[in-house]
């Protein structure tokens, strides 16, 4: 049913730290690896090793240059920001309500937005409704694909407990991605968001994304403190120190 749940018990989502992300693409490849071999059909590619490769990816990592702001301390220099982008599992996802078949839905128990690949007709209207470009059409499967928040990992009792997090979070070598319940103000992710002033993308559109982004930290001024003036040892030392200093100076 494409009617949205009034509230969800949990608000599972990701927190992405733009200060830490190095743009290594490990999360993107890990996402592709898990989701192409998981439930439903593979995430199809076309001409993957040729001159014009394309395919369905549920997580894409952009890199941008931000000019910074000369007037603000700590932001004066420009910044390279690596920017991972995937479904934000909005609280009010327009992609769900436009779906004519009910294939798109938001789960009441944890807020994950999913597509049922068995009932999707591939009309692509949900991808038009999403402002984040998070949904990708699978040309071979004929249905829409999107981030599932690795719903087939996080509750999966057949894999080791440490693997029961989304593949992208598991793969991130720098710890730039965190997974948790953003509906619980005491969860680690929520605390981190509060502390670091995490923000929404395109909050102006009103879809209330669950995933949050943490801004790059302000740069600490790298100029070192001036050292205290060097004082010759001899002036303060004992007579023996002075003697050794004289010997040292004479011999060297």
């Amino acid at each position: 049913m494409t009617t949205l749940p009034k509230t969800t018990t949990k608000k599972l989502g990701l927190v992405i730290d733009l200060d830490i992300c190095v743009g290594c693409q490990a999360c993107a490849t890990s996402c592709k690896e898990w989701n192409t071999g998981g439930y439903s059909a593979p995430l199809s590619d076309h001409d993957p090793y040729g001159a014009d490769p394309s395919g369905a990816w549920l997580n894409r990592i952009h890199s941008f240059e931000f000019p910074g702001d000369a007037a603000t301390p700590g932001l004066a220099d420009g910044k390279t920001v690596h920017f991972p982008r995937s479904c934000l599992h909005c609280e009010e996802p327009a992609c769900v309500t436009v779906c004519p078949t009910g294939a798109s839905y938001k789960r009441e128990e944890d807020g994950i937005v999913l597509v049922n690949p068995d009932t999707c007709i591939g009309c692509k209207l949900c991808s038009w409704a999403c402002p984040y470009g998070a949904r990708e059409y699978d040309y071979d499967h004929g249905v829409m694909k999107k981030c599932t928040l690795c719903v087939d990992r996080i509750y999966n009792e057949h894999i080791p407990e440490e693997d029961r997090i989304p593949a992208c979070v598991r793969a991130c070598p720098t710890g730039a991605r965190a997974f948790g319940d953003l509906g619980d103000p005491d969860s680690d992710v929520s605390r981190n968001v509060a502390e670091r002033e995490g923000f929404d993308l395109l909050a102006e559109m009103g879809y209330k994304p669950t995933n949050k982004y943490l801004p790059p930290r302000k740069r600490v001024d790298p100029t070192p403190e001036p050292l205290p003036e060097a004082v010759p040892l001899a002036k303060h030392g004992s007579r023996m120190d002075a003697l050794f200093a004289w010997v040292d100076k004479t011999l060297s």
């Binding site: 394309s54 395919g55 931000f66 910074g68 991808s127 059409y137 801004p215």
Partner: peptide, 23 residues
């Protein structure tokens, strides 16, 4: 608005996530 970090100014793309156009 799209990047949510107006304090850093308007971004310019540096590296795309893929070499060829996607869906």
């Amino acid at each position: 608005m799209a990047f949510g970090m107006p304090q850093l100014g308007a971004p310019t793309p540096l590296d795309p996530p893929h070499t060829q156009p996607n869906f």
